[in-house]
Simulated assay, not measured.
Amino acid sequence: MSEEQTETGTGWPKPADPERPAGPGGEPDPRPDAPDPDELSPLVPRTEPAEDGAGVEPAEGAAAVSPDDGAAAPAGAGRSRVSTASVMIAALLALLGFTLVVQLRTTSTDPTAGVTRQEDLVRILSDLDARENRLRQDIAGLEESQRQLRSGEQGRQAALDEATRRADELGILAGTLPATGPGLAVRFESGAKPISATRVLDAVQELRGAGGEAMQISGGDRASVRIIASTYFLDGENGSLVVDGRRLTGPFTITVIGDPATMRTALNIPGGVVASVQGDGGNVIVEDREAAEVSALHAPIKLEHARPVS
């Protein structure tokens, strides 16, 4: 007895599965235990539903078709996407380059230089050259003083002379000592509008910036007030000015000691003091003085807490 007969238990071989009969019309097999015709087709892969609702992978050798893809992608789709991305990147780079060029042209162009006249530019350049020369002279003087202080026997006398000179300079700046030297006399004449305290303060600041070392302001009644760092200006009644608590009537004259050419250039800069006063209907008359005298003195400040150290 063969192994096949032993496994069936009947002594006879297990009968083979019935084959699908080939009918003329392709009718289904009437037998109740007939297999599913689709299971016999070698062209369709058999799939069974899994527990999570997903289908079982197709049999080996069968082509897998995604349910989301209605049709296969065309062969040139990848090249089309790459070409579109390249065009967009190139356009963005071109836009970025154009923006950078416009920004550089905007920042490199000074809007004030285009409307400034050549004569004004020459004056500004001359003012800068004069300031540079003055600073170089100050540096040379300080270096000479340092050399003298280190020269041994002459050091003591040089130190005393330097202290005296420094005290005189501080006295002039503080307004406790009179001063004389080359400078300007700036006269303000009012027009339809009175000369305001703001215009006078602007003039003082322009003169200081141009190297004015000592100055005073005088009114129409010849009263004068020394201008120092703490001086303030207020508008008074009937076009008058209040300077450090003292009332002055117009016209007003500022006497300043310094380089005349440099200070004149500072006052006549477009949009400066002279242009502002003329815009209000007034006038500014600037006169050179070979020996401008600043004689008004400022009362020394009485110190309450500080004292010099000997």
Results as ranks from 00 to 15, higher is better:
Val87Ser: 13
Pro67Met: 09
Thr10Leu: 15
Gly220Pro: 02
Ala185Asp: 03
Gln5Asp: 15
Gly219Ile: 00
Arg156Lys: 10
Asp120Lys: 02
Val122Pro: 02
Ile89His: 09
Leu297Asn: 04
Val204Cys: 05
Arg307Met: 13
Arg247Asn: 04
Pro28Thr: 10
Gly114Leu: 10
Ser295Val: 12
Val284Gln: 01
Pro28Ile: 12
Ala59Ser: 10
Ala163Ser: 14
Asp127Glu: 14
Ala77Asp: 14
Asp259Arg: 02
Thr8Pro: 03
Ala192Tyr: 06
Gly171His: 05
Leu43Asp: 15
Ala203Cys: 12
Phe188Asn: 01
Glu143Arg: 11
Gln118His: 10
Gly97Glu: 05
Pro300Arg: 08
Thr112Glu: 11
Thr262Gln: 04
Glu293Pro: 01
Thr84Ser: 11
Pro270Glu: 06
Glu143Cys: 07
Leu40Glu: 08
Ser41Leu: 11
Val186Glu: 00
Gln148Gly: 07
Leu43Tyr: 15
Leu173Ala: 11
Asp202Ile: 03
Thr10Arg: 09
Val82Asn: 08
Pro300Gly: 10
Asn133His: 10
Arg246Gln: 15
Ser276Glu: 08
Ala291Arg: 13
Gly191Ser: 04
Leu297Pro: 01
Glu293Met: 09
Asp288Thr: 10
Ala197Met: 05
Gly250Asp: 00
Ala223Trp: 00
Phe233Pro: 00
Pro300Lys: 06
Glu162Cys: 07
Ser108Gly: 12
Val256Arg: 01
Asp127Tyr: 02
Gly9Asn: 06
His298Gln: 14
Leu160Lys: 13
Lys193Ser: 11
Ala185His: 03
Asp17Thr: 12
Leu125Thr: 09
Phe98Leu: 15
Asn283Met: 07
Ile228His: 03
Val115Ile: 14
Ser240Leu: 03
Glu19Ile: 06
Leu92Trp: 11
Ala163Cys: 08
Val273Cys: 01
Gly239Ala: 06
Asp68Phe: 13
